[in-house]
Computed example of a mutant assay.
Amino acid sequence: MSDLMNGQMRKAMTLKTRRTLIAYSFLTIPLLFFLCVRIFPTLYAFSMSFSPQNGSGFTLENYIHLVGDKVFWRSVMNTLLYVIITVPIQMAIGIILALAIERIQRLRWFYRIVYFIPYITSIVAVSWVWRLMYDPNTGFMNEMLSWFHISPQGWLTDPSEALISVSIMMIWQAMGFCMLIFMAGLKAIPKQLYEAAQIDGASKWRMFWRITFPLLNPTIIFLAVTGVITALQTFTQIQNLTASSSGDAGGPLNSTSSMVIYMYNSAFNDFNMAYASAITVALFILILFVTLIQLKVLSKNFEY
């Protein structure tokens, strides 16, 4: 009897060991991919940021240059402006669209698709369509302004308007994603809370501020954190909207240049990889700092 039990135990242990080995073998490939594509390039860029442009060794000249670089600080300011302008507005439009579509009884799926399509469309294609719309001579934007007898605007050629023009396109593209996530958050709120509030005579505006908005806190945190990180890493929209014939982007006069654009120009136009790596490290620190502040400020306890 004991021999039979021991045999069954050994067989069970063998089966468990085999399953464990199979599980680890499946995890090995994505782990190696993550190490090769994420971890190693990150560490290599960090080490390269302490290297001189010509030669080898350890130096802080890239960071010293970074502190006194006016174009870098302009790109930092522009990056923060992208965050401040785009993230709150696209979230506000997203929640308005979500609340409006929730009240629609027919063709709700159609409106979801219409507002979500810009988010899943190629950023390059969308950027070039907007670039054509912003064209000062033949673009639709100035044509539309002429209907109201407003003079043409230099959407992407005027330094005072270029950043706003890029931000408008970013907001238009991301608001559908915010709408979809907010709709999922609204589905998670128990309907009994609204029924109890109606019995107590609460208005719709009061129900929104007292029930909907507080209980959407996890959704708001998710969209705020992901939206800020995306805005801090803005590249494709600026590159395709503002790239000149020479390949430089971020114009006019660096008015739309973000940290990623400046890093790209330093690396692939100026061929200064060490300095571009220093900009990358600065961007990483900024993203980490802003994300930690967001989680600290926005996170709060809630219960349904």
Rank of each mutant, 00 (worst) to 15 (best):
L99H: 00
V126D: 02
N6P: 09
P190Y: 05
Q173S: 08
T79D: 05
G250E: 07
Q105F: 03
I64W: 11
S47N: 15
F58W: 07
M263D: 05
R112W: 05
I29L: 14
I168M: 01
I279Q: 07
T157C: 02
A267T: 05
P41Q: 01
A12Y: 12
T280L: 14
Q173W: 03
W209Y: 08
N54F: 10
I93Q: 01
S277N: 12
T236E: 15
I64F: 13
R108Y: 13
S51M: 13
R10E: 11
F46I: 04
S2N: 02
T28H: 05
M273I: 13
L215T: 00
A278V: 01
L156G: 02
I64L: 03
V290F: 08
N137A: 08
Q8H: 03
D3E: 13
L4H: 14
P88W: 12
W172H: 02
I293A: 12
M1V: 09
R18D: 01
R103I: 03
V76C: 09
L43T: 08
D270W: 11
W128G: 01
Y115L: 00
D270N: 13
G139T: 02
F40H: 14
R206N: 15
P52S: 03
V129H: 08
S51V: 07
R103K: 08
S127F: 03
F50M: 07
Y264G: 06
K204R: 06
A278P: 01
L21F: 08
V228H: 07
N217S: 08
L215M: 05
Y82N: 00
F33M: 04
V67S: 11
T230C: 06
